[in-house]
């Protein structure tokens, strides 16, 4: 594919260096997780994963992801479109505001919703009167997940769309395409990998979020525990291999999504 190649020795030494870094920073901790997950053998692994509390945690995590990712996907595309294709006052401010959830400590991300919807929060009284439960129930967990993963898709798309400029879209319009035709035939194919990375990151992060969800969950077993919270519970019960077994599911999900990505890219 590439027209001109770096010399082989450069390729090899850079690759070796990069893989060493990847190994040290990421693979080693991961191996530690898997080794501990299987410390007590397959049977213990399956028991931990097939436990009803684990399954209910998986369901809740998938539900939160299923709501948070599409919402943030639509937002990400709209925001990136505005930010990269148009010049307007306050653009930098808007970009920076979108980044905010990254800079908010997870503890605070959860606390926000307690301050709003908790018994002593702004809407607490009203919610109690109408018997609506947000925090310490599923809606709170979904909200915290949406908040934490808010910038991911937008953040992936902005640098990519910025580097692409507006010429292709302009050409499509000049040639008589409608706005939606332009979007689906030109823009979307151009950004599909960035979009995909964004969705993968958003999904992974939504599945793994611990701090914020921990604050709003209430930790009711079998009801408001997500996968990461369940990991903590198992760990606190001295069930180390069980904890790491459940954690390894999360890692496995990430690997599967990425394999899926490879597969899709081969289709095209």
């Amino acid at each position: 594919m590439s027209i001109r190649k770096d010399p082989v020795w450069v390729q090899w030494s850079l690759t070796a260096l990069a893989m060493l870094a990847l190994g040290g920073f990421i693979v080693l901790p991961l191996v530690a997780v898997f080794v501990q997950a299987f410390e007590k053998g397959w049977a213990a692994y399956v028991t931990a994963v097939a436990d009803p509390n684990t399954l209910s945690a998986i369901r809740l995590s998938l539900l939160a992801v299923g709501i948070a990712v599409p919402l943030n996907l639509v937002f990400g595309v709209a925001a990136a479109w505005v930010i990269t294709k148009f010049q307007f006052r306050g653009r930098d401010l808007l970009v920076s505001l979108i980044d905010i959830p990254f800079g908010v400590s997870p503890v605070i991300s959860g606390l926000i919703f307690i301050l709003l919807f908790g018994a002593n929060g702004w809407f607490g009284q009203w919610l109690a009167d109408h018997d609506v439960r947000i925090v310490f129930a599923v809606p709170g967990i979904v909200l915290a997940t949406v908040f934490v993963t808010f910038p991911f898709v937008a953040r992936e798309l902005i640098p990519l769309m910025e580097s692409q400029g507006t010429e292709e879209e302009e050409a499509a319009l000049v040639l008589g395409a409608s706005a939606w035709q332009m979007f689906f035939r030109v823009t979307l194919p151009n950004i599909k990998w960035g979009l995909f990375y964004g969705v993968v990151l958003c999904t992974a992060r939504a599945l793994g979020e611990f701090g914020a969800v921990s604050v709003v969950s209430g930790h009711i077993r079998g009801e408001t525990n997500t996968l990461p919270l369940h990991v903590e519970i198992l760990y606190n019960e001295y069930n180390y291999s069980g904890a790491f077994a459940v954690a390894s599911i999360l890692s496995a999900i990430a690997v599967i999504t990425l394999v899926l990505k490879k597969w899709i890219s081969h289709e095209h």
């Binding site: 929060g121 310490f136 209430g218 077993r221």
Partner: peptide, 20 residues
């Protein structure tokens, strides 16, 4: 009977904030 466990102070705060 459902159980919820955590640090004592954190649990009290959750109840104060509406954990039923």
């Amino acid at each position: 009977i459902s159980q919820s466990h955590g640090g004592s102070g954190k649990q009290a705060r959750s109840v104060l904030d509406g954990l039923p």
